[in-house]
């Protein structure tokens, strides 16, 4: 770890602190937000942390190449797609259940989820 963090002495340590903090915040939000949209936002934090990490590693660990940056771009695209899918589901859910509070969705018992009525 130590060897990695001091590699190049170019602030990699600080950058990794930023990305891991972002990622951890995202995970925390994902586990604690009750509103589905809040969960989606937290998820975006996670994905963006990863994207930043790719860019950082590209700049500091593999300079002169672009693969990490390309990956970061793709991650942004995937994140956008994820949001579209997620929002579509939330809209559907709201129209069916009049709520997007995930803690109110508890139908997974043996009897309660017996398929369509």
């Amino acid at each position: 770890m130590a060897e990695l963090l001091h590699a190049g002495g170019s602030g990699l340590h600080a950058w990794l602190l930023v990305t891991s903090a972002l990622f951890s915040l995202g995970i925390y939000g994902l586990l604690t937000r009750r509103n589905a949209v809040g969960i989606l936002l937290s998820l975006e934090l996670c994905l963006n942390a990863a994207a930043v990490q790719f860019a950082v590693f590209n700049a500091l660990r593999a300079p002169g190449r672009v693969d990490g940056a390309v990956m970061a771009l793709f991650v942004v695209a995937v994140a956008a797609a994820e949001v579209v899918v997620g929002m579509a589901l939330f809209v559907l859910l709201y129209s069916q259940r009049r709520t997007v509070d995930v803690t109110e969705l508890t139908g997974d018992g043996r009897d309660s989820a017996g398929g369509p009525p």
Binding site: L31, T32, V102, T103, L105, T106, G107, D108, G109, S112
Partner: peptide, 8 residues
Amino acid sequence: AAQTGQAQ
């Protein structure tokens, strides 16, 4: 029993 239905 672990299947509580809670997404989180």
